[in-house]
Simulated assay, not measured.
Amino acid sequence: MQSSIVYLDYNATTPVDDRVLERMLPFFKQQYANPSSPHLFALQAQEEIDFAQQDLAHLINCRASELTFTSGATEAINMAIKGLTYGHRKHIICASTEHNAVLECCRYMETKGYTVTYLPVDKDGIIDLKTLEDSITTDTALVCVMLVNNETGVMQDIPSIATLTHQAGAWFLCDATQAVGKIPIDVKQMQIDFMPISAHKFYGPKGIGALYTNPAIGSLEPLLHGGQQQKGMRSGTLNVPGIVGLGTAAAIAKQEMANQNKLILTLRDALEKSILEIDETFVNGHLDKRIFNTTNISLRGLHSQEMILALGNIAVSSGSACSSVTNRPSPVLRAMGLKNEDNLSAIRFSLGRFTTDHDIDYTLDRIKKIVTKLRG
């Protein structure tokens, strides 16, 4: 009997890699200087920030100067959507399956006089490019579509979406929170104008992230005013340990991503194949256009919350970590056309760097026993 946690909720957060933690520790106790100070001690801290910024820039193929450190992806999204100078254009488009951070910002913009179009998706969670093209007008200023959906793992055709957006003279925000550090990303090749990043999604610490901004956009209206750190884009004393952790996580991801992904994909497919052998089960989302570590499966006739409680020491999710506690049908799965019964039976399994064969075998054994018991 296994008593320790089997963690299959990597899309919610990841454990900090030991190498990341080791790199961070000196900046809590020995190298604790404020990088905004003028002395040598502070200059050393600033140098470490510069190194971390370069590592993150290298991961997504941008210049270090195009990155602004934030507290995470939510702040980065708010910074981009609320800080953009829209001029005479008053129309925003976003996918109906976006993360709440994007959706709530768009709803906020509606209270400020902007019009928002919420794009539908098909049963596989994919945006129809013709629908997007028809939705874009001469008044459109911003299009928001995430690269990898946090609940289903479904991936959108970002280069095509960006091309349609730019042809209309609008800017493109791509929430890549679930993609950075997992799959190769080139913001230039993919034509991304804004991209939020969160360290805790790829084995870095919580409370630190970044916003990539296309320099052609110019300056944003800052959310925070204060000491003019980061060229006035985001005032406040920099989180040196967090930034060092983010940079270290980025460097490790760049080096190890390819080999790691193959191993995780093998485990994900083994888990999914065995669960689908259970009667009345099916995958939510496109089977091919999705990230390697995620599967969202409905077990018809069962309630996901009941399953999660019964699984006990196996950590899985019924949807987004930000909304799963509400015990309501997932808006993402609803947008894909799932009936409430099937929606409420969905469980997201998301694997990661430290998932083992034993974790998968143990999980499958428990799931099959629990399903038999609950259905019986």
Rank of each mutant, 00 (worst) to 15 (best):
78 N>L: 12
53 Q>P: 00
124 D>I: 00
98 E>W: 01
46 Q>T: 01
126 I>K: 11
139 D>H: 09
55 D>F: 01
157 D>A: 12
106 C>A: 15
117 T>S: 14
127 I>N: 13
73 A>P: 03
108 Y>Q: 14
58 H>Q: 13
61 N>E: 12
67 L>R: 05
149 N>G: 14
107 R>N: 13
110 E>L: 11
160 S>H: 11
77 I>E: 05
72 G>M: 10
153 G>V: 02
111 T>P: 04
160 S>F: 03
133 E>T: 11
102 V>W: 07
100 N>M: 12
108 Y>L: 15
126 I>A: 09
75 E>I: 09
92 I>W: 07
158 I>P: 05
113 G>D: 09
49 I>V: 09
86 Y>K: 06
80 A>C: 07
63 R>C: 12
100 N>K: 13
68 T>C: 11
93 I>D: 06
146 M>Y: 12
89 R>A: 03
88 H>P: 01
139 D>P: 02
56 L>K: 03
82 K>Y: 10
152 T>I: 05
88 H>D: 15
62 C>G: 06
94 C>I: 02
99 H>G: 02
48 E>N: 08
69 F>N: 03
67 L>C: 00
169 G>C: 08
132 L>C: 00
89 R>S: 08
112 K>A: 11
138 T>M: 10
117 T>H: 09
104 E>T: 14
104 E>W: 11
115 T>L: 12
82 K>R: 15
127 I>E: 03
126 I>W: 09
141 A>I: 06
110 E>A: 09
63 R>N: 15
147 L>C: 06
149 N>H: 05
143 V>Q: 01
120 P>R: 01
150 N>K: 08
110 E>S: 10
161 I>H: 05
145 V>R: 04
56 L>C: 01
143 V>T: 11
145 V>Q: 10
121 V>Q: 03
161 I>Q: 04
101 A>Y: 10
89 R>D: 01
123 K>E: 13
105 C>D: 09
76 A>W: 02
88 H>C: 04
84 L>M: 14
76 A>M: 05
95 A>T: 11
167 Q>H: 14
47 E>A: 15
126 I>R: 13
56 L>Q: 02
70 T>G: 08
138 T>Q: 15
77 I>F: 04
45 A>C: 14
139 D>M: 05
118 Y>N: 03
150 N>F: 00
103 L>C: 03
130 K>Q: 13
153 G>N: 11
51 F>M: 08
81 I>E: 02
49 I>E: 06
116 V>T: 11
110 E>K: 12
142 L>P: 00
44 Q>T: 11
133 E>V: 04
94 C>L: 13
62 C>F: 01
119 L>P: 06
117 T>L: 06
124 D>F: 12
115 T>Y: 03
80 A>Y: 05
141 A>S: 11
45 A>M: 09
74 T>V: 13
108 Y>V: 02
82 K>Q: 12
167 Q>M: 11
126 I>Y: 05
161 I>K: 04
66 E>Y: 10
